[in-house]
Design a protein around this nucleic acid. Structure first.
Lengths: 190, 190
DNA sequence: AGATTAAACTAACAAACGTTAGTTTTGTAT
DNA sequence: ATACAAAACTAACGTTTGTTAGTTTAATCT
């Protein structure tokens, strides 16, 4: 457990506030107050408000991308792939709880190359998942319904987990993973 | 198809912009430009930016509440209730597409009594749904998994529909309703 | 003790914010 | 044509915004 740099502390606090109120509604003075300092002091560590948003979103998005690519290319059954994607999503969400808020709701405020970069990662992630589902339907392991609806159904639940998990930390990780996987697999299984 | 008042046009445009960028990131000048007028002119029709948000969110929330109460009290089977809730959610979402963005992401910017009022409606809606699910588990019609996870899974999908529906309007309403209901019932059914 | 460095500070900026007051334009009904 | 109402306008207000420049404090190392 290494001690975080001041920059990391700032980003962490920002993530928390962005989650509560959204990126645009959080001012640099709000963020400074949360840390017990003055707004101008933040700029000794970060170069802009946008930089904070960018580092929050892009690092998590890359984590998703790397994980998904690995699963997509691995030699396991379709249903096992779906299961792994679910586990990946849960793990990344739990690890980056607050940042998930920005990733889901404030990605459109990314600037410059960061925006198309993020969108490309997001599209590819969805496309990989779509391919897995379509393959499952052809194979007969996944229900023969509109693949778009199956994809949307599973992805919605996964993407909203960040809102629920904090409230329900009475549930332990093991049960959460098992029950979520069971529920979501049941929804798409043939 | 009665012609909308200017106020209604303003609120509708606002809903669209709030959906795209979030409430806090949309300025009154943005909104005015969208309507081809100057910002000050908006105040001939509305009294504040907050009033727009409030009328957007509260009216839809009440629609959800009324619908849910009706279903909750009706004399039908548990699974039929779940099915009706799903249909309610789809209908309200399709009818108020843009407003759903604010309801989901900007409710925390409500002011005064509107905030606790909204929160109470939201909690009661969830509580009613929770009761339906718990009853189903006791009866044996719904899978014996953690009811919180079942609730969260279904509700997440329903609440995110507003993001998906606009992109997939190739799918007709009939298929959408049928496939969504099938998918979500499959995820919780015993 | 003196030097160095990290991290805070004060003060201020130009731009953008929501909103107000008062005035002019536009369309409709007399 | 005149009167009336609806809806636009210009101009400006006090605040808040993200950010900069320059300075002071606090802790660490030689």
């Amino acid at each position: 457990m290494k001690t975080p740099t001041r920059k990391e502390e700032i980003i962490k606090s920002a993530a928390k506030l962005f989650l509560e109120r959204g990126y645009s509604a959080v001012t640099m003075r709000d963020l400074a107050k949360e840390l017990g300092i003055k707004a101008a002091s933040l700029y000794n560590h970060i170069s802009s408000k946008h930089e904070i948003l960018e580092s929050l979103i892009i690092s998590v998005a890359e984590e998703f991308t790397v994980g998904m690519n690995q699963i997509f290319l691995s030699e396991i059954s379709t249903l096992e792939k779906v299961e792994q994607v679910i586990h990946l999503h849960i793990d990344v969400t739990v690890k980056n709880q607050d940042a998930l808020g920005s990733l889901n709701n404030d990605w459109m405020h990314l600037e410059g190359k960061a925006l198309p970069y993020f969108e490309q990662m997001r599209n590819q992630y969805e496309e990989n998942f779509r391919q897995i589902i379509k393959t499952g339907i052809v194979e007969g392991s996944i229900a023969a319904r509109d693949p778009e609806i199956l994809l949307f159904s599973v992805l919605s639940t996964l993407r909203t987990l960040y809102l629920w998990y904090p409230k329900k930390n009475s549930i332990d990780m093991q049960t959460l993973k098992a029950d979520m996987t069971a529920t979501m697999l049941a929804s798409i299984r043939a």
